[in-house]
């Protein structure tokens, strides 16, 4: 049962990255392109906008139901970055909707834009920082140490911030590839293709930098990563998608491009998950929180499994229908 729950959790998280991430990325992209991308962004995400963010709620609920100690530890030690993520989620969610539904189109749009863009960046950055802190191994439950040592330095450091920046560019990249398919002219498509390539290059640079940094800092995750065949294979496959995506971009094959990027992200996340699991939070003292030592009792898992099975049976066809209605033409 736990395996099933972990798979649903993984899928929720993956969908949050590719759909919710694309929404964040859209805001980040606007920082680079200004108002140019607003129209295709609305075409791309408006109807599915709210649904994209439900994946996060599902993931959180699964964590606090099935793995309460992990939720509790994150909430205590990573309180500050999570709180900033929340502020970002509130700001951008409302700014996006207000910008769309404000009945009057005037100078106020400027402010909606500002909040939408800056909070998209903020949320993505701190989501990445939070994840970085979970794998870096700086999280501590030690007593009698200073406030910054306990609540700030475990996440505010070059490694975690680099992971945050990586996340920002990953989301921006996903969004840009997605938006190419919503453009109306060839010129526009070319414009966004160029940006996507730049984001891809940035991802490689930052990704390499993260590895070097992790190696120098002796982050335990990196040795797990380098010694795990699934991680290495997934990483190679994710890289192998690059020429394919460039080719499809050249052919302007929208569906192929989108599927390839989704596949590429899947392999990036698989590479990461294979190295990390079953550890979830790497603790400074070595007593890592794992799926096994944090899992709730069998009756809890039993009822959660039932709820998730029914949820999946309802949600997936409904979501498929939603995308079919708005994305089929």
């Amino acid at each position: 049962m736990m395996e099933f729950i972990v798979i649903v959790l993984g899928i929720s998280f993956y969908f949050y990255v590719i759909f919710g991430g694309a929404d964040f990325g859209a805001g980040i992209l606007e920082l680079f392109t200004g108002n140019k991308s607003i129209k295709p962004i609305y075409k791309a995400i408006a109807p599915v906008w709210e649904a994209n963010h439900m994946w996060l709620i599902l993931a959180v609920v699964i964590i606090f139901n099935a793995f309460p100690p992990i939720y509790s530890r994150m909430s205590i030690s990573l309180h500050i970055p999570l709180f900033i993520v929340l502020i970002g989620i509130i700001m951008r969610g409302t700014a996006f909707t207000f910008r769309h539904y404000d009945a009057v189109d005037d100078g106020v749009k400027k402010y909606y834009n500002f909040f939408f863009r800056s909070s998209s960046l903020l949320t993505a950055l701190f989501l990445g920082i939070t994840l970085g802190a979970m794998i870096m191994g700086g999280v501590t439950d030690a007593e009698g140490i200073s406030f910054p040592d306990k609540y700030i330095y475990p996440w505010l450091n070059p490694f975690c911030v680099s992971i945050g920046i990586f996340t920002v560019f990953l989301f921006a990249y996903i969004a840009t590839v997605y938006i190419i398919g919503e453009t109306e002219t060839e010129e526009e498509a070319l414009y966004f293709s160029k940006i996507a390539c730049r984001f891809l290059i940035a991802l490689f640079v930052i990704g390499g930098w993260v590895l070097i940094l992790a190696y120098l800092k002796e982050v335990p995750f990196v040795s797990d990563f380098l010694s795990n065949p699934i991680s290495i294979a997934s990483w190679v496959l994710a890289t192998a998608f690059v020429p394919l995506i460039l080719f499809l971009m050249n052919k302007n094959n929208v569906l192929g491009m989108r599927i390839s990027v989704a596949g590429q992200v899947a392999f990036i996340m698989l590479a990461w998950a294979a190295a990390q699991l079953p550890n979830i939070i790497f603790m400074e003292n070595g007593n890592h929180l794992t799926l096994y030592n944090s899992v709730a009792g069998p009756s809890t898992l039993y009822y959660l499994t039932i709820a998730l099975v029914i949820g999946v049976i309802i949600i997936f066809p409904a979501l498929f229908y939603l995308f079919k209605v708005f994305k089929s033409d």
């Binding site: 109807p47 599915v48 649904a51 599902l58 139901n65 709730a296 009822y303 949820g311 409904a318 979501l319």
Partner: peptide, 23 residues
């Protein structure tokens, strides 16, 4: 979490359906 998480997981599903139907 382990005791009353279940209604929250149902709520997650309901909320999801609501978002889809609203779209």
């Amino acid at each position: 979490g382990g005791i009353i998480g279940m209604p929250f997981s149902w709520e997650g599903t309901a909320f999801f359906v609501e978002a889809i139907a609203l779209g």
